[in-house]
Write a protein that binds this DNA or RNA. Structure first.
Lengths: 210, 210
DNA sequence: CTGGACAGACTGACCAGTCGGTCTTTTTTA
DNA sequence: TAAAAAAGACCGACTGGTCAGTCTGTCCAG
């Protein structure tokens, strides 16, 4: 078995091409050419172009749910959970930006049966965010006047939108962006009192270390 | 001349169809059928399917720049400008959700010459946001530790993402969503001192009226 | 009687997916 | 254990359907 399988080479090539030009502008022939294989090789590894798109979605959403779950189980307070979730999501752009782009740009074109499968997992991720915000409110660190769904979707929006503009060779690293986003979000949702807790100071930019 | 022109009927039908299924899944024949016209009628009014897509982009981006410009000239402080920009952008979903969806979902598929034209206007809108945040910092109401570009893009993200989930028959009206987003953003960017200014209290949810 | 607004049959390019075939690896069997 | 058979991986010319755009008209207003 070679270091990279044909299937992997096809996926990598497709990912780059889809990100640049979108699912529909990319023909199977182009993917085949870029990955140095053939029509036959492609259809040996994938049932259809649709299935390839699904595979890309699947690998990404599984990864991100795992990360959210980790943040959820490794930390105690909702504030910490939220902070870590935001941080880990943004850092993920470092490696998965192409996946994210394809995920949000092309999921409309998944055929119904694939779409349903992805939607289910995406909703699970959404639910995790909702419940963190919910918990933060009932536990008292998050502002009572913020409605859970809108606040959660606002957070999602801020984070997700990054795929539209982030460049790995840009002026800010993902880590810096993650720090800033997390600061903005914590600043926005924490109560005055919670903002001043010493153990939460690390959430904010320019806090005194140590 | 009839109440609605053929051109308008085509645009409206296309808008709905593009929003539901995406540019590539919608054939000219489907648009023609839905708008009650014909292939001939279509190509009489539009040079190509591309031009129709461009028209939709154009009408929306022009509208939104106008709104941002109004917010920019009708208010004095950067804080007020930001608040109004956010608010007016979100309220715009009420009428233009389909436009926004097509705008963000399908602009990848604009042919180069159209794309350039749209990009120019989109950048102008972006610049207006950047300079409001910039001004807020130098004038002192916005937190110094926030970098202008990332903060601006975070705000964009929160707002723009709404097109992915907003439903006009959902639990929250655009006005409520606008209030919440604006609160979150102002809470996140204003300094402690600015947050307490009496004239800024109206930005926040549940402030005492009068 | 001319030119704009529209109708709709037609065409040609493009592209996802197929299919017969080759080469290599693994499994079976004598 | 060697030969034979089967399975798996991959190749690339070809096909059939789809769809943007064309072209020859018709109708009607001015």
């Amino acid at each position: 078995m070679p270091v990279t399988t044909t299937k992997q080479r096809i996926t990598d090539a497709a990912l780059q091409l889809f990100e640049e030009s979108g699912f529909h502008a990319v023909t199977v022939d182009k993917i085949v050419q870029k990955s140095g294989t053939s029509k036959g090789g492609f259809y040996h590894n994938f049932k259809s172009k649709d299935e390839l798109l699904y595979t890309i979605h699947e690998s990404f959403i599984t990864y991100i749910i795992e990360k959210a779950y980790q943040a959820h189980t490794s930390w105690n307070t909702p504030a910490e959970k939220l902070y870590e979730t935001v941080h880990s999501f943004v850092r993920m752009f470092e490696v998965y930006q192409a996946h994210v782009t394809v995920f949000y740009q092309e999921s409309l074109y998944l055929s119904p049966v694939y779409f349903e499968s992805i939607k289910k997992k995406r909703d699970r991720y959404k639910d995790m965010m909702f419940s963190v915000v919910e918990d933060g409110k009932s536990q008292g660190d998050f502002r009572q006047e913020l409605p859970v769904p809108i606040t959660s979707m606002a957070i999602f929006g801020m984070i997700n939108w990054t795929y539209k503009w982030y460049k790995s060779d840009g002026a800010y690293s993902v880590r810096e962006i993650a720090d800033i986003y997390a600061d903005l979000i914590m600043q926005a949702v924490l109560t005055e009192k919670a903002r001043n807790k010493p153990e939460y100071q690390r959430f904010f930019l320019g806090h005194k270390v140590g």
